[in-house]
């Protein structure tokens, strides 16, 4: 029973990391940008949920829709305002811009909402579900299911749809994609929209589990998801999921052993080991630099 609980905990935490890592990996895949503001988009999603439910007293389903929608729009807006003008700039410029956007969102949230944590109300009264005599946390089960569905949908989108193929084409060779008649800017915007929508879903699942919104909550979450994406091989969808689960399980195991103060250290140690042994990550392929 104890073991089953821990496995479910690992799956839940890992799934959240996986969702966030998917967003990271998609944006990296298409414009080779580590979007450091990605974690902060989740923070904004959490505040939207809080705002809609706790302040405006609207039902949870409205909060969910507005969180996902708000994150999606924010992601596209960030790309248009901050990254698109730098499309032909050196990669370092756009990386630094991403860090700037991250600080802007964190400090902006602190200015607007204050530094203290806001409690996000529960999305549902159901707290456990019964499964074959075992009583499982509803949030955990929902998180795992939603992540699994999101991963399948995302994979189908990228592999099978015209837009998904255009994303892969842009990711490989922007100039050649243009020659095909693909509108590169729209394709990149779409990628940001999808990645940020996943962040919005991540925000809901995260606040289901931890019920708090703080201005800096996206920082550690984003960093862990980044580690997950790199572990799995950045740019790879299955890599992001496996990396997310690995990071989640590592944290849960360390915590279960009573060493919870070490859990962050263990995650980063995992990253260091992978970078030494297999720098491209588990599913990563060696990419030749584009000239």
């Amino acid at each position: 029973m104890q073991v089953l609980m821990q496995v479910l905990n690992g799956l839940q935490l890992g799934s959240i990391y996986a969702l966030v890592a998917l967003g990271y990996t998609m944006v990296y895949g298409i414009i080779l940008l580590l979007n450091f503001a990605h974690g902060d988009i989740i923070m904004v999603g959490a505040y939207i949920s809080w705002l809609v439910m706790a302040q405006l007293g609207m039902p949870p389903v409205v909060a969910m829709i507005l969180s996902v929608l708000g994150c999606t729009l924010l992601g596209v807006l960030i790309d248009k305002v901050a990254y698109a003008p730098l499309r032909n700039a050196p990669r370092l410029s756009i990386l630094i811009t991403a860090i700037g956007v991250s600080y802007f969102l964190e400090n902006g949230a602190q200015l607007v909402f204050g530094a203290d944590a806001k409690v996000v109300p529960a999305f549902t009264d159901v707290s456990t579900i019964q499964l074959g005599g075992a009583s499982l946390s509803f949030a955990a089960v929902a998180t795992v299911v939603v992540t699994a569905v999101a991963t399948v949908v995302l994979t189908l989108l990228v592999q099978k749809t015209k837009l998904g193929k255009a994303m892969r084409a842009v990711s490989e060779d922007m100039g050649a994609a243009r020659l095909m008649g693909i509108n590169v800017n729209n394709t990149i915007s779409f990628t940001f929209a999808v990645g940020s929508a996943l962040a919005g879903i991540g925000a809901i699942l995260y606040t289901m589990a931890y019920t708090q919104a703080t201005p800096t909550m996206g920082m550690m979450l984003g960093t862990k998801a980044f580690v997950a994406a790199v572990l799995g091989g950045i740019g790879s969808i299955p890599g992001a999921v496996v990396g997310g689960l690995l990071v989640g399980f590592a944290e849960v195991i360390v915590t279960a052993l009573g060493l919870s103060v070490w859990k962050d250290a263990v995650v980063f140690l995992l990253l260091i080991i992978v970078l030494i042994v297999r720098p491209t990550g588990i599913f990563g392929r060696t990419m030749s630099e584009k000239v």
Binding site: K165, A166, R168, A169, E172, I182
Partner: peptide, 12 residues
């Protein structure tokens, strides 16, 4: 597009 199939390249 080296990572896409021949058919996908043509589709693009």
């Amino acid at each position: 597009f080296t990572q896409m199939s021949v058919a996908e390249n043509l589709e693009m």
